[in-house]
Write a protein that binds this DNA or RNA. Structure first.
Lengths: 193, 193
DNA sequence: CGTTTTCTGGACTGGATGGTCCACTGTGGT
DNA sequence: ACCACAGTGGACCATCCAGTCCAGAAAACG
């Protein structure tokens, strides 16, 4: 499928419009007609750019959102080399999800697109990269002598990921960032020893 | 609505059948007809016992599953008074979710019944009780001098909940209990100081 | 230009599904 | 025996929605 400049623009418009709508509305009830209306396109266009229909479109949106997740944590996430840096990162994560409120773009998509191979691949990639950044940060802190050598960097990084995911999920259902903050603070305390 | 013994039995059969089906199958695609077929009932019965239809039924299933969550962790969760007790609890949680595999009864329900007031209430109640048990366990360990007094029991309990939730969620998408184990082990290590 | 390909619009379809309705049956109380 | 009401079965309805199809506009390209 060769896309002209116009075609690429339209495709992008569909993805971004769908992403915006999925952020604000209950994902379970989002229909192709909603997206069509919001993006000012037609059924023909949607299936022209996403021949496999809804699933392919939602997957494209998921990829789009996944890219945003790590970008939003930069530059902090890429340079976890001092305690103030960790605190800034912590604050940026909390701020991001507090702003996002109850809606969770990726969580929403996942509950829709469910357990298709493509969907798990998107999440796995994201989680893997995220975790790698944290693991590297812990290792750097250890190299600098700021964190005990006895700490298992890989396992602790995994705990961070789990804590963040759970914190965000609880934010979705309770509306409070309390659990997210508790998880991050407790784990950072753990690193501090 | 007065229920006779027969009525109560039928209602229960519907709830349990629906729960079993929601555990095994992709929750997004479960229909009332599926449940009807599995439980050997008719549309009339379903709407007789759950006048508000699908939502009311799914909420009843959610309550049913929520009760199971804490029960399955007993007696360990109720007596976190020594390190071996904490380990046994940890193992029971990991075992439970490992056995459950990729399916998460409550997570499934939540992504369906979404953000209705009833649904959030079920989750909030469950989370609250769960967290209270852990908080109590930490406090008892502190009283016994096994955990530093400086640890914030409430915050750490919240971190446990977040870590478990996130670990389970990652289990759902990656199929591995690694994150769940990492979260539990890291937080228990933190308690050990 | 002319033609080939991409882009766009929207009518239409097919099937799924939540929910309604009503007739019939069983059961418990008096 | 009767009657009121709970329980049951399943036909039927209304709607929604992903996906199809095709005709026509607009680019790209020679």
């Amino acid at each position: 499928m060769a896309l002209t400049a116009k075609g690429r623009a339209t495709r992008q418009r569909i993805v971004e419009g769908a992403a915006a709508h999925l952020r604000s509305d209950d994902p379970a009830g989002v229909t192709l007609d909603d997206i069509r209306a919001i993006t000012g396109t037609s059924k023909g266009q949607i299936f022209h750019y996403f021949p496999d229909g809804k699933e392919e479109l939602f997957l494209a949106v998921a990829r789009y959102e996944a890219d945003r997740v790590l970008d939003d944590q930069q530059p902090h996430l890429g340079a976890l080399t001092s305690w103030p840096a960790w605190e800034r990162w912590r604050d940026s994560v909390v701020a991001r999800y507090r702003a996002q409120g109850r809606s969770c773009p990726l969580g929403a998509l996942m509950s829709q697109v469910g357990s298709t191979p493509g969907a798990t691949e998107v999440v796995s990639t994201l989680v893997g990269q995220w975790e790698a950044h944290i693991r590297l940060g812990i290792a750097e802190m250890q190299a600098a002598g700021l964190v005990r050598a006895g700490v298992d960097a890989g396992r602790t990084a995994a705990a961070f990921i789990a804590g963040i995911q759970g914190g965000v999920q609880l934010l979705r259902t309770t509306g409070s960032v309390g659990h997210l903050e508790a998880a991050l603070d407790t784990l950072i305390d753990h690193l501090r020893g």
